[in-house]
Design a protein around this nucleic acid. Structure first.
Lengths: 196, 196, 196, 196
DNA sequence: CATGAATGAGCATTCATTCAT
DNA sequence: CATGAATGAATGCTCATTCAT
């Protein structure tokens, strides 16, 4: 596995397209290889097996997600602003990448339980960003002091995820980014903010 | 398709058990038939194909869900109380049926996009219950008058769903029902309720 | 695995032909199925996997071998006569079945070590027939009393096997059965027979 | 093909080790190359293809075999003594080289029919040593004058080969060399020797 | 001479569905 | 109505060989 080689990302990007266009179960290794412009066997120079492509795909994309969100959050002072940045970035990154949105919201969820558990592990990096915002909000008094962080995180992630999934299922017919402030308002209210 | 015959429900119940115990992709038609105590071929006297079993399964269970929730809601006056009943009933019904919880939260989501869209259609019956509560809440002034019903519904459903899924993924190690009031509080806050 | 069904033997016989005509590594399951006149999947109603076909093949054929040899031996009095019957039957059964001869002498030996060990186990039934003849011969004084039974058995089996393999490798251009008496004489001499 | 270069033998020796330790079908060219300390591609500067490695391996080792046996035989007077030397040397050379014993007795036999025929050709050099001893023995009267040389050779080679194979299959748990005299006695008897 | 990244043909097995009984 | 034996399409992965460097 040589992650520095451009072919590594080339195959991952091809997988996103192949899965988005053909569906999870119809994205055979040969289709991914063809999309990447390499031979079938070449895939296996960079990935252990098909599952490894999907895990790596999720790792890479989620890594970028967390990274970009952290960058955006860095300069913000209040937890509410940070949450806004998180929602805004989450919506924007998926708005900008049609294929990725389909893959993360619809297709990759068809993977088996084992793979889903691995994906869930990777997701923890993102969820802990939410947790840190919530804890900070509680400390600064922005959020209710008796807020249950786990439940609040589940509300935030559940709401964002459901919003994006609905948008994808509705074939992205409306502007996801336009929902940022409304969703933010709902969640901030939920967290017991008194800043209104 | 003879839905009056007991064998229809017998096969659906067998499917829930077979899927919960073996996983979605390992619940072959032959396993469902064996669990139901019928021959493989018999399945096809009651269902068009395997997908039809899953759709019917979801229809039947979701029907019961909506029915029971509506019963509970009927006597309640405020939207907040109705939402409480909805959360309470949702959590309780899944707490009481271990197999069903696994199937709805983890396994059935591995189905392909086409089937997921059909399941989403069935889900609309449940979502409209939420919508009615929200609209009523806005009319009575319990909820913010500028509340976006679609977004609020996505928050409510997304939060409940994420809460239950987390509980199932954590192997139901804690009491889901105990979370009812906290989740209700989060969502009521989110909806801009001023009843505190 | 239903060994009473005619299809079981039908597939085994097809495997012998397919392997003899195509070679061990070119006898794909689909070729065996085609030769047997059944669908590929049907093979798996009667055999666990491809290896199981080969093991069963060897078991069945070797079982017949031992059975027929024991029948022939039954009526004979001296160990020398019994050995003659064994050689005669061994040569004759393989002379009569061109495909089987190729499979047992050339093709099946290409199987992997694991399978070869299983085949060796099955072979023990045949080797113990030889051992019994040798022990009896020592008891009656036909064979040298200090004969090492294991070594003598290895000589007998090694000689017979090498003779048949050479015959098959020479494309069966001469009459294998005609060698029976010469081979018998060699082996009887080797065992220290004094009956000349 | 540059057989003068040390790398030629280096690769052959690596092949013996790789095959003995991994099994015939698991001894990929890349493993042989790694064992030899060269790049995969380098193999093809010294050998036409993988099969050529195996044929060359057998040629080299069998050449050494015949050479050493001929040296030992040279000084002996009787055919019986020569046969004893042959058996003794055969057993000793394989006893001394664990890897080679596994390769020649178990692994290389898994090769396909075509390769086996080529190996058989190489083997003829060894078999003609046996033939010469037999003919000489017949001429000197040590062996029966009506001895069929081809059959006797098959007995001798078959017995020796079977004895060594059994020893390898029994994980070399006993002393192969200790069997030399017993095997010699069996074979001498078989050839109708009257020198007792 | 030597390298090693890239190639791409080839195959055992599963399982939803059918249909003769 | 019910059965269950039979069907056959569909795919991830390996590894001998090549060739640009």
């Amino acid at each position: 596995m040589n992650k520095s080689k451009p072919k590594y990302m080339q195959i991952i990007d091809a997988a996103v397209i192949a899965i988005a266009e053909n569906g999870y179960h119809q994205a055979q290794v040969s289709k991914i290889a063809k999309q990447a412009g390499v031979a079938d066997g070449t895939i296996y120079l960079y990935f252990k097996n098909k599952e490894d492509i999907l895990i790596s795909l999720f790792e890479e994309k989620m890594g970028t997600f967390v990274e970009k969100i952290n960058e955006k959050i860095a300069g913000k002072e209040t937890a509410a602003e940070k949450l806004l940045m998180l929602i805004e970035t989450h919506f924007r990154l998926l708005s900008e990448d049609h294929h990725l949105a389909i893959v993360t919201q619809l297709e990759i969820r068809q993977s088996n339980k084992e793979l889903r558990l691995k994906i869930n592990d990777i997701l923890k990096g993102y969820l802990s960003v939410i947790d840190r915002i919530l804890i900070e909000g509680k400390e600064t008094g922005e959020f209710s002091s008796d807020l249950d962080v786990r439940l609040a995180r589940q509300m935030i992630f559940g709401t964002i995820d459901e919003t994006v999934t609905s948008w994808v299922m509705n074939e992205e017919r409306y502007d996801l980014n336009a929902l940022t402030f409304s969703v933010h308002r709902l969640l901030i209210n939920g967290c017991g903010s008194r800043d209104k």
